[in-house]
């Protein structure tokens, strides 16, 4: 009976809807950020997810956070696909967008560390400085005692090598 009262209550209470939003958005934002890795896109996708859900369902409060996350992943997938010259799937993007129930190692830090360790030392350093510590190319050049052009070439070779390693690992994952 308590459950039924709750069901009737939220029909009449705007606060319930607001409460549901406040309880879900921080987790959803973090989930999206983990995939897109920038604040602007994470905020856009978070808002678009709520807009979509609020427009579609009479009682969105009934939806679980898992449903919100799946909707968000589909929004990201569509946004990325719209910016591509071909409609084909990109396995590394798909790995980033794996749902909660799917096991993908791509977002596992141990796995990424392991892949990074397979790179030459200077490539590891450039990625750490540019991507993890967010230093500019000039700052990175200074810290590594190299020219800016050299840093640009080094980071490119590092990312290409890493991409290759990750693609091979994904192929192996799919085979097993």
């Amino acid at each position: 009976m308590k459950k039924l009262k709750q069901l009737l209550n939220f029909k009449t209470n705007e606060k319930q809807l607001s409460l549901w939003c406040n309880q879900t958005w921080p987790e959803l934002y973090r989930y999206i950020y983990n995939r897109v890795q920038n604040r602007e896109e994470a905020e856009d996708v978070t808002q678009e997810t709520y807009m979509k859900i609020l427009a579609k369902y009479s009682y969105p409060e009934l939806l679980s956070i898992a449903y919100l996350k799946t909707t968000a992943l589909n929004i990201i997938r569509d946004r990325w696909r719209r910016k591509r010259t071909s409609g084909t799937q990109v396995p590394l993007e798909e790995a980033l967008l794996a749902g909660e129930n799917e096991i993908s190692k791509v977002l596992d830090s141990t796995y990424i560390e392991e892949a990074l360790r397979q790179l030459p030392k200077d490539q590891q350093t450039v990625l750490e400085l540019r991507l993890i510590n967010s230093y500019s190319r000039a700052e990175t050049a200074q810290k590594m005692n190299k020219s800016e052009d050299a840093i640009r070439g080094l980071q490119y070779r590092a990312i290409r090598k890493l991409r290759e390693l990750m693609l091979n690992n994904l192929k192996e994952e799919n085979r097993t």
Binding site: V36, R39, L92, L96, V106, I112, I132
Partner: peptide, 24 residues
């Protein structure tokens, strides 16, 4: 962008996932 650029951006995003998310 082409598939190659998409894969490169995806690789960059993957490495960046090692740091903590920025607050909105």
């Amino acid at each position: 962008v082409g598939v190659e650029e998409s894969e490169i951006i995806a690789t960059v995003r993957t490495v960046k996932s090692m740091k903590e998310p920025q607050a909105p």
